[in-house]
Computed example of a mutant assay.
Amino acid sequence: MNRYIKLVNFEFNRFLKIYLVLIGITIASQILGAIIRSNQYLNDMNDLLYEQLMTREAALEQLGKISFYHITQTVWFMGPIAICIVTLLIYMFFIWYRDWFGKNTFIYRLLMLPTARINVYFAKATTILLMVFGLVAIQLLMLPVGRRVLQWMIPVDFRVDQTIREILTSFDYLMILFPSTFYEFVIHYAIGFAVVLVVFTAILFERSFRWKGIVFGLIFGAFAVTIFIFPVIVQAFILPEFFYPIELFALECIAGLVVVSLSIWTSNYLLKKKIRV
């Protein structure tokens, strides 16, 4: 366990500078976005009130009140989220291939450490998971910050104050990152973690068998997806409306455990018997 924790710490520190940059981009962009969007609204409202000489009621009827929802629709808000997601998707591959193709073939040292090789696999997967949770936590903290910026800049008569829950439920993409129930939270992030493990296994296939490994990896990925969605396929096409929702959920959990177990077992086998360094 101690060696595993050291490996996680080591992997996290290797990505720390880029990770801090992602956090900085998210904070700066979303605060700036809240300021820019609020200022744009004020300019539009001032134009209606003082240039076109509308009454407040007429201006509000034409422009409407602003809420934090309008800020979430800007590139300043969504851009950093997209950048973080894309960066972590790329890093799922980079976290392995860097060890093979870096300045020094570091994979030799990793696989020769006095610990089970599967710990390297777990450490890399855990690092990805911790990074995801960290960025999600930062994003959750930025919601009240952005809301406060809006409240500072926009008079109360021209805005609609939303609670954090209202902000989350008003924007579908945020509901994916911040599910409304613990049940949904477990589903979303368990599926995400399973995807990471399957991708890691596919990478190890490629590293073990090179060009053939790419085919093996794609086959493994397709097989894993088939296993996971099999209960849904049965429910939709073979036995329509046969399972209760709780039963379908239980079957999906079992299928997910099968996928995760298969990924871990296969990766352990490849690391111990087939991996080429």
Rank of each mutant, 00 (worst) to 15 (best):
L49P: 01
D47C: 10
S263W: 05
I176F: 15
G33F: 02
L239K: 10
H188F: 14
W265S: 12
F249Q: 10
I214K: 14
L60H: 05
Q139T: 00
F10S: 11
F223A: 15
F133V: 05
G256E: 10
L130C: 09
K212F: 15
N39C: 09
K124Y: 07
A34I: 04
V86I: 15
S29Y: 04
V86T: 11
G24D: 08
L22P: 03
A190G: 15
L7I: 07
I229F: 13
L22G: 03
Y173N: 00
F133N: 00
Q62K: 15
P231G: 02
L42Y: 06
R147M: 14
R207P: 01
T226Q: 07
V149Y: 03
G256Y: 09
W100T: 00
F230L: 13
I246C: 06
A34D: 06
V232A: 09
A255W: 07
T126N: 05
Y50Q: 08
G217Y: 01
G221K: 01
N268A: 11
Y97S: 05
I176Q: 01
Y121R: 02
L63I: 12
I233N: 02
M142L: 15
E206C: 05
M92Q: 11
I27T: 09
N119R: 08
L49A: 08
T181L: 05
I83S: 07
A250K: 12
R3A: 13
D172M: 13
R276S: 14
L16H: 11
V75T: 00
P240L: 12
I246M: 13
R56V: 15
I138H: 02
L20H: 09
S29V: 03
G221V: 04
A59C: 11
I176A: 11
Y108M: 10
G217W: 03
T169E: 11
V199H: 00
S267W: 03
F77C: 07
V136P: 00
Q139S: 07
Y41M: 05
G146C: 04
F205I: 02
Q139W: 09
Q40P: 12
N104D: 13
L177T: 00
P240Y: 07
L129R: 01
V145Y: 06
F93A: 12
L16I: 13
L218Y: 11
I95C: 06
R3D: 14
Q235E: 11
F106S: 12
K272T: 10
W265Y: 15
N2Y: 15
N268Y: 09
T115I: 08
F77P: 00
V199E: 01
R148C: 03
I187S: 03
F205L: 06
F220K: 01
K103P: 00
V132T: 09
I27A: 11
V215H: 02
I264D: 06
P144W: 08
R117K: 13
I191E: 11
G24A: 08
L271C: 07
G102C: 06
Y91R: 03
P80L: 08
C253R: 12
M175F: 09
F15G: 01
T266Q: 10
L111R: 02
I138Q: 06
I233K: 07
L251V: 00
K124A: 04
A28V: 14
